[in-house]
Amino acid sequence: MSAPDIASDRPPAGALARLAARPAVWASLAFVAALALLPYSAPLFHALFPELPRPLYTRASFLDLALSHAGLVGLASLVVVSLGIAIGIFVTRPAGRDFAGPVDTLTAVGQTFPPTAVLALAVPAIGYGGAPTVIALIVYGLLPVVSATIAGLGAVPAAPVQAADGIGLSPAGRLVKVELPLAAPVILSGIRTSVILNIGTATIGSTVGALTLGSPIIEGLSGSNPAYVLQGALLVGLFAVATDLWFDELERALH
């Protein structure tokens, strides 16, 4: 057996060290640790809030809340990214250029429209639970992705596009091989904004019966239990920070 084969059986030298140097790894570990340790933190919250009879949220497990929260945000983001990029592409093509203005206005309205109002409107139509929450997140999260796609495609330098046409790339080939890769960093920053916004916004889904990390917050607010609010907020905050740092990694990998 040759030397390189033996070497490849061992973990790559310094891989752990490199992993440990990443803030995203630490933030994720903190999030996981908080999820794992919170169920055992009753004594701590008893000490912090001695006036509360039940200072630890137990109606649902924090892990279930986090998984459901991530699922709702993930589903909404999947739709937001595919729909947002598709819209951004459409209005920057010759065929869709006339729609650029109206689409811009519409997505901007989507973001100024309060997500709570979207929930209030959606519930009578489709009932309580996760579905109205996902709809609200989609409406709310679309703008950053659409505008980043438009901005990113608009900022692609003219010369490579001109050359792509001239040497015989088809319009679709030019988009996929030249325009989107060159616009990718800008589009990714829009996706990052959208996802982070929605990790926070998803908490309000708990007002209409969705299971999210907002559930302890909402219940804590209505039941005057600041310990619940603190537990929910801590987890949402760590989730958002960890996700944001992973986007940071991704953006750096792209450059």
Partner: peptide, 13 residues
Amino acid sequence: IGYVIQSIGLFPH
């Protein structure tokens, strides 16, 4: 047909 332009337009990525 080969095509060469003043701004060159190599694909930077």
